[in-house]
Amino acid sequence: MKIIAMIPARYSASRFPGKLMKDLGGKTVILRTFEATLNTNLFDEVYVVTDSEIIQKNIADAGGNVIMSKTAHECGSDRIAEAVAFLDADIVINVQGDEPFIDKTSLSQLIEVFKEDVNKEIDLASLKVEITNQEDIENPNNVKVITDINNLAIYFSRSVIPFHRDKDISVKYYKHKGVYAFRKQALLDFYKTPMTPLEASEKIEAIRYQEIGKKIKMVETSVEAIGIDIPEDLEKAKKYLNL
């Protein structure tokens, strides 16, 4: 089973333009993410996929594998699918370009899902982390996920799910972490399918996979990623790096 990592890297970002090229301890954010992914030794190959010549040069100058997108894309899955179409791979892991501190344990757990799936019934695997703070639960920027008893995703939403009607019943809430592991064919099927109605409503790409019948296995993790979404996050990352 050939396993590769793909790091989608878009230069433009509405909340923090050019964030992937910001300096983080003498290297760019995207280069640190690439090197951290490579250093996990989990993957046969690691690629950065970008629409930016600036990012392309940064990775290529460091000797890394980088693929330039041919068309504009709305989401990371589309960008990866275009790039992976002609690559030899069985499992593709999507690593977020703005998370330079890779959680190797969680990535290993995602890979293990497919190693254990001998009948090839699982199309994707992804991560969830329990949240208990009410503000986090109600925040629409935090995508919530509910699963069945086998940890297969039932639905993703920016709304509070499940609804806690009976206060005598204990309820747990989980935030979806946007790290995916795909079978290659699931990616290609996603790419050739236009945006689906519920996906368009929620603006959550995972829903498109569900709307076209893909099974998503959720893996619980206790590790919160250090993502860089706003300038303040970059300062936190710099402090973390100096620990």
Rank of each mutant, 00 (worst) to 15 (best):
A225E: 11
I149H: 08
S222Y: 09
Y209C: 03
I212E: 04
E99V: 12
E121D: 13
G97A: 15
M195T: 14
K215L: 13
I91T: 00
D148C: 00
Y155R: 12
T147I: 06
S126K: 01
I216F: 03
H164K: 14
M218K: 06
I146N: 06
V95C: 02
K128A: 04
T196E: 07
S157T: 03
T193S: 10
F190S: 06
Q210D: 03
R158I: 01
G213N: 10
N94Q: 12
P100S: 08
S222P: 05
K203C: 12
K120N: 13
L107H: 14
V95T: 03
D148M: 04
T221F: 13
K144T: 04
I204P: 12
K167W: 09
G227P: 11
D103E: 10
N142V: 11
R208L: 02
L127M: 09
H176L: 10
K214L: 14
Y209E: 01
Y209W: 12
M195R: 15
T105G: 07
G227A: 09
V160A: 09
I161V: 08
L198T: 13
K177I: 12
V145A: 13
K104H: 09
E116W: 00
D136N: 11
K203R: 13
N94R: 07
Q210V: 02
F101M: 01
V171F: 15
E116S: 10
A206R: 03
T221P: 10
N151W: 02
T193A: 05
D117Q: 04
N94P: 06
N142G: 08
K217V: 04
Q134M: 15
K167N: 07
F101H: 04
K120L: 09
I204Q: 03
L188D: 05
I137A: 09
N139V: 14
M218T: 05
V113G: 00
I161T: 01
L198G: 01
K215P: 03
V179T: 14
I122A: 00
E130P: 12
T105W: 02
V171K: 11
T105I: 10
M218D: 02
Q185G: 07
R183Y: 02
Q210L: 13
E199T: 07
T147P: 11
T105Y: 01
D168H: 13
I91S: 05
A89F: 09
E138H: 13
S201W: 14
N141P: 00
T147K: 07
Q109T: 06
D98I: 00
E224N: 15
K120Y: 10
M218H: 04
D136G: 08
A181T: 02
I226W: 13
V118E: 11
V95H: 02
Q185S: 14
V179C: 09
V143P: 04
I93A: 06
E130F: 10
E224A: 15
I226G: 06
I154R: 04
S201Q: 08
F156M: 05
K177A: 11
T221H: 13
E202P: 07
Q210H: 05
V171M: 13
E202V: 02
N139D: 15
K172Q: 14
Y155G: 05
F182V: 01
